[in-house]
Design a binder for these strands. Structure first.
Lengths: 177, 177
DNA sequence: ATAATTGCAAAGCTTTTGCCGGACT
DNA sequence: AGTCCGGCAAAAGCTTTGCAATTAT
C-alpha cells in the first residue's frame, strides 16, 4: 500500500489519510486518548456517516466497501471499545444482533415499524421529565434509559408487509433513521 | 370463549397431576389449545410461580428441582411456543440471555439497579398516555413498547457494589421483582 | 391411531479470545 | 523500543434442530 503524504487535501474519497478530515467519531476517539489506527479511523468514519443503527456485520460490510483492510474481529473489538468509552451505545431491537448508535447524537428513543423494520428516532421532553420522576420515586438516580415503541403505520401505504416480525434471530437487517 | 369447568379434581397421585390444580399459565395454554404434556405443565407451573424474570437456564433449574424430567431443549422450545402464543414476553436486560415475563401480569416496565441487578417493576399511567400520543404523533398504532430505566440507588448503604455492570455477556443472573 | 412432543447431541449464530506479526507513539 | 493493535481461526455462549422413541388427544 502506498503511504500518504501528510498534510494533503482533505481526501474526499481516498483511504484513511492520517491527519486530514477527522470525522466526528474520530475526534471523540482522539479526545479519549485512543490510539488511532487506520482501521479505527475507517470504522469511525463509517459510524460518523451512518444515519441508522447498523449491527456489526453491516459496519463490517460498509467498512470493507471503503477499504477492505479490516477484519470482522476488529470491528467487534472496536465497537466494544467505543462502547466502553461512551462513544457508542449498544441497542437491541430484537434481531439477535446488537446495533450501534453514536452517543453524540443526543439522547433519543426509537419507534420501530414492526412491518417494515424502519426505525424512527424521536425525543420528548415531557418523557424525560417523567422518567426522572419515576426513578426518583423509587430512590434512584437515572444512569441510562431505554424506550422503544413498536408500532404499525396507521394508513398503510403500498408497502410490502413483513410476513413475520416476531422471530428470534436475524430479524430486520436494515433500517433508516 | 369457552368456559368448560369440568374441573373435578382428580386424585393427585404424585407429581404432575393432569387435571388437578391448573396453574395460571397452564390455563392459558389450554385456552390456546396447546397439547399439555407433563413437561409443559411443569414449566407452566414454574412460570406461574415466578415473580421475577428468569432466563431459560433459571427456568430449567427450577423445573428440574421440581421434577427433573425435562431437558433444557424442551424449556427453550416451550418458552418460544408460549411467546408465539402471546403467553410470555421475552425481555432483554442486557445479559445476553433472554428473560421471560408472563404477559398476563399486565403491562409494566422495569427499573434495573445497575449495581445489584435488582429489577423493580412499575407502571405509570401518565407514561402510557404519553407514549400513545407519541406514537400517534408519527401516525402509528402502538403494538408493543419497552421502557427500561437503569439507575443507581441514591443513598447506597453498605452493600457490595458490583465490580462490572456493563459487560456484554452473562450479566445479572438473578433478580427479584 | 395419528400427529405432536421430548431428549440427546450436534449444528448454528453471534461474539470473544489466543497467538503472533505488524503498526503506532 | 516498547506497547498496543490487527488478522486469523478456534473457542465460547446461547439457542435451534434432526432423528428416533414416547406420549397426548
Amino acid at each position: 500500500m502506498d503511504h500518504a503524504t501528510h498534510t494533503h487535501t482533505k481526501a474526499p474519497h481516498g483511504k484513511a489519510t492520517p491527519g486530514a478530515d477527522p470525522t466526528r467519531i474520530e475526534r471523540l476517539c482522539i479526545e479519549r486518548g485512543l490510539k488511532m489506527t487506520g482501521q479505527r479511523r475507517l470504522i469511525a468514519r463509517v459510524l460518523s456517516e451512518a444515519e441508522d443503527h447498523p449491527d456489526v456485520e453491516e459496519l463490517y460490510r460498509r467498512a470493507i466497501a471503503l477499504d477492505s483492510k479490516v477484519s470482522i474481529a476488529t470491528v467487534y473489538r472496536t465497537v466494544r471499545l467505543l462502547e466502553e468509552k461512551g462513544i457508542l451505545e449498544r441497542r437491541d431491537f430484537g434481531g439477535g444482533r446488537s446495533r450501534y448508535d453514536p452517543a453524540d447524537r443526543g439522547h433519543h428513543h426509537h419507534l420501530i415499524d414492526v412491518d417494515t423494520g424502519t426505525v424512527i428516532e424521536f425525543e420528548d421532553e415531557e418523557h424525560e421529565r417523567l422518567v426522572q420522576s419515576i426513578a426518583a420515586r423509587y430512590g434512584f438516580t437515572l444512569v441510562q434509559q431505554r424506550l422503544e415503541l413498536f408500532g404499525k403505520k396507521i394508513p398503510a401505504p403500498a408497502a410490502t408487509p413483513a410476513p413475520d416480525a416476531r422471530r428470534r434471530p436475524a430479524g430486520t437487517k436494515k433500517d433508516q433513521g
